[in-house]
Nucleic acid binder design. Structure first.
Lengths: 337, 337
DNA sequence: ATAGGTTGTCGAAGCGCTTCGACATCTCTT
DNA sequence: AAGAGATGTCGAAGCGCTTCGACAACCTAT
């Protein structure tokens, strides 16, 4: 293992000079710099992470807490995680993967041990039990998701409320009066996950304004659950012509069941999905959808965090504006018969 | 930030004693141990990760390299990643998330800097460019996936060749003579990803033995691609009655298209999928499938790695035996008409 | 020509921990 | 009763780096 001292010796300078070449925190003459860089290359030197962390009290690691649960759409999580990792690298940080398993203790452990310089939390609940810890520490953090009380926190999220409103707006705008919302699994609501509830709020308040009716039903993914849910919906509101789906694993079942029941999309019923674009275009009907901007969320989170770590940056809530793309699954409501 | 020295002072012992209490590397009297543990708790002490890494040259971090690509089934990756992270924690390790982006350089960086004690590599290609580096370093590593040459490496993987064989066996056993294989996206084969090619090998050699015909077609996921692929298959082999699908995003499109064409599953055609059980049971037809044991792979990988780090453990290739579960998508081949 | 500023380099201290050898006590043997 | 072996504790060295203050050496500007 090559050390700084060896590089220094090889280049004929002192250790501190090598350190300053590496960090750029003091000016170094061009000739010296080049000599040092040459030595670094020749010896294949890599600074030791532990020593660096100890001396500088900076680990250059960002912790990412992802949930264990699988009741949320996994590809979105993954996409965020990957965006976080790659963005972090461009700023010189590595990413430590923490699962929800440890719960709030993980926050304590990471903060206390200096393992990471900062954290990103996913799957935030409205009253998340990690928040008090976060507020009481001076370690920078960013939430992906919005808790009930955001004072003293930095959050990045899609504007779910606006997302819900946008869906209703679109459907109401093309004449639908009875809208059913296929939501996430019941457990998601029971946990009071922010995004699910906020979407619903947005949906409902816009519906009130637009004078349309909304029926919300949580739904586990899969065909059987969807069949049951759908039956109940048409039972209760036979006039339903618009669907909003916020549950990726319910999308395909819904389309298949509608088809099976002889309800044509978009002639008889319209469907708007809240899902990544990739899902929307790969479905059996190209779906009108509001995109979940997973990459953007991950990137934003890291960039805010890095800003904070650099002493720039402030606590703030960044809501990404939703965008609805009209595709083949929505159209004018059929004339009431 | 509480330090070891402060704990020592608080407990009225020397720093080294506290260290030995923590590590258990020397015997400590019960009374002293308790006093120290008490102090640790009272002060809320957490050992500093950097200092520890520096002094012990052990970071207690395992690096996990996951691919960037999204042409493989993401939930499986995620499941492995989560299994790795949770299993690692039970052994006192944290997980560093590396994306494929950096390529082989990431291996150099992590090895050289002592950031991680060991690595787990996913998405292994037959001639993976990271392998030479891995072989030339003494840092323990485990591959999830099988390269062409495994000498000096430890690998964990599903026995894909046996998986392919098993699928054919099942279909041939219930009378199917013409089998079509819907594979992963073409890019996966072009990259020479081990699992895809091995499955195919297993499929083909067993087919030869069983005297059945196999037609393999790579397929991007989604409806349009699947429609095209399916049309070509029936065009070339109208008598096809058995399908093997190794591409989660083609499963549902396939079922929908078959239904649409009036081919009943399993009466007219049988479908065997290679996918996680969850996908198999959530599909519109409960699928006969060979499970991809994602969790098991992740767990195994970590356990082998930890064994190596503890000085136990050897280089070896662990192939997990595939298991086929018969569900509702496969049945006797229709009598030839 | 000289005070005052830059610029580039160095030495040394110290980050918080692990670990080794030393040593003081005990507890058996014989 | 004395030596041998456990057992429990301590002090000190050192892991590889960052960073601070010091100080030459070189510029200006007067």
């Amino acid at each position: 293992m090559v050390t700084l001292a060896e590089v220094a010796q090889h280049a004929g300078v002192s250790a501190s000079t090598v350190s300053y070449v590496l960090s750029g925190k003091r000016s170094i003459s061009t000739t010296t710099r080049q000599r040092v860089e040459q030595s670094i290359r020749e010896l294949g030197y890599h600074p030791n992470a532990g020593a660096r962390a100890l001396a500088s009290s900076r680990s250059n690691i960002i912790a990412l807490m992802i949930p264990l649960r699988t009741d949320m759409y996994v590809p979105v999580m993954m996409e965020i995680a990957i965006a976080v990792a790659t963005t972090a690298r461009t700023h010189g940080y590595d990413v430590l993967l923490l699962t929800g398993e440890e719960g709030p203790d993980a926050v304590r452990r990471v903060t206390g041990s200096g393992l990471a310089d900062a954290m990103i939390l996913m799957d935030v609940e409205l009253e998340d039990e990690r928040l008090p810890l976060l507020r009481s520490t001076d370690q920078p953090s960013v939430l992906i998701g919005l808790p009930a009380d955001t004072t003293g926190l930095t959050c990045v999220d899609l504007d779910w409320s606006a997302t819900g409103a946008l869906c209703v707006e679109h459907l109401a705008g093309i004449g639908h009066r009875d809208i059913a919302v296929i939501g996430e699994a019941p457990a998601v609501y029971e946990r009071h996950t922010g995004f699910a509830e906020r979407t619903l709020d947005g949906l409902r308040s816009r519906a009130r304004e637009a004078g349309v009716r909304v029926l919300h039903r949580p739904c586990e993914g899969g065909y059987d659950a969807m069949a049951l849910t759908l039956a109940r919906i048409f039972d209760e509101r036979p006039g339903t012509t618009g669907f909003v789906v916020q549950n990726e694993s319910a999308v395909e079942p819904l389309l298949a069941l509608l088809r099976q029941q002889g309800r044509a999309v978009p002639e008889d019923v319209s469907v708007v999905a809240v899902c990544p674009d990739q899902v929307a275009v790969q479905a059996s009907v190209r779906l009108t959808s509001v995109a979940v901007p997973a990459q953007e969320m991950g990137r934003h989170a890291v960039e805010h965090l890095v800003a904070k770590l650099d002493g720039r940056g402030t606590d703030e809530v960044v809501l990404i504006a939703p965008e609805l793309t009209v595709r083949a699954s929505s159209g004018p409501a059929p004339a009431a018969s």
